[in-house]
């Protein structure tokens, strides 16, 4: 799976226990792929000294007003976070 820049995507809304690098505040939120930054080993496996799968890592841009209901109204401010492909749902 290769997602091209500018694609509108959704972050999976799930919260399994353990070491996760997808912060809660972006889970279930809609964002836009800003760019793919390469392929990296999955931290969810590295954290437990397991052999890790390699996954594409994307910088995803969110509108602040989509993340926080009480954010400055009509603001164009954004939040970028790095998200691994297995946390991304195409919509």
């Amino acid at each position: 799976m290769m997602i091209s820049d500018g694609t509108v995507i959704k972050i999976k809304d799930t919260s399994p226990p353990g070491h996760i690098r997808t912060p809660k505040y972006i889970r279930g939120k809609i964002g836009v792929v800003e760019r793919c930054v390469g392929v990296f080993e999955n931290p969810e496996q590295l954290a437990y000294a397991l052999n890790a799968n390699s996954y594409s890592l994307y910088r995803v841009r969110f509108k602040m007003t989509d993340l926080w209901s009480d954010y400055l109204k009509d603001s164009d401010d954004t939040l970028d976070a790095e998200v691994f492909e297995h946390w991304i749902e195409e919509i």
Binding site: G18, H19, P43, L46, A47, Y48, A49
Partner: peptide, 11 residues
């Protein structure tokens, strides 16, 4: 070990 291993232990 990895920096993720460090973070996991810290968490």
């Amino acid at each position: 070990f990895t920096v993720d291993g460090l973070r996991r232990a810290l968490e």
